[in-house]
Amino acid sequence: MNDSNSLHWSFDYNYGAQNPQFAQELIGTLRGYDPEAGTRSTQTGQTLTHVYNVLPNYWRGYNRGGNAETLSIGTAVIERSKRDNLWYYSVEYENTTSGENLRMQFCCSDENYRPLRDNWSVDARNSADDEYAQWACAGYFTSDSEVRLRINGAEIVAGTVDVSVELTCNWALFDVIPMLARTIQAADDGIDIAVLEDLEQLRLKGRLGFLESTLTPIRLEGYYLYGAGLLPSYWWLDAHGDIAIASTFFETLVLREKMGDRV
């Protein structure tokens, strides 16, 4: 592990009030992650889990006067298991700055693009001291390719997806990018992909491409995602085929723990 603080610009938020804590926590989290300790012989039906430490990219996560012990503002846990040629995902995302915790459940076909399948759900809980306490949403496709969301008995259309479009969930990209890595690298301009962000927001014109490689803090291959309504995000794949760092516009997810393995 390279301890240099010269992180790649796409996930270097080690400045201002975050210097040197951001680099220390990013490198420390990766150092604590030991892929060899995980179970490496997962059978069908077993669960593959990645746990990410969520670091804020800006201004100490707006944690004004808050906990200075750690920069971390939360955790993301991605669990998935395969049954009957479908991948069942359960994602928990906790954010101590917003106070909102999300639990998302969805399933995808067992294909490299991880196409999203009926049905999915989002359960949100707010720990802040306000009237909004919780919220639930269930989503499905209609026969007309509409994406519909049911919210407390009301139903809205999130958009329409042409049958030719490869639609997945942004949380499945933690598998899609490793599986499509060579395809993406071979494509000069990247590949098209549509994303249902957090299972709510349809981003139809996304593009996944290869960025470059880096050796700091470990050997990583970088990929980007951008498109209409999508700020560029950067995804860094390690030598074990896991997304070790995912830096979206506002936060950087750093792999802390892995259990199980891909089939």
């Binding site: 800006y58 201004w59 996560g61 707006y62 944690n63 004004r64 808050g66 954010n95 101590t96 700055t97 917003s98 106070g99 909102e100 949100a124 707010n126 720990s127 802040a128 306000d130 009237e131 909004y132 957090d198 709510e200 979206t248 516009f249 506002f250 936060e251």
Partner: peptide
């Protein structure tokens, strides 16, 4: 207040707050 953030919303932070 329906929602005002765990850390009261200040100058920025849309990525955390707008969806909530």
């Amino acid at each position: 207040t329906l929602y005002y953030g765990q850390q009261d919303i200040g100058a920025g932070g849309a990525a955390y707050y707008d969806s909530a």
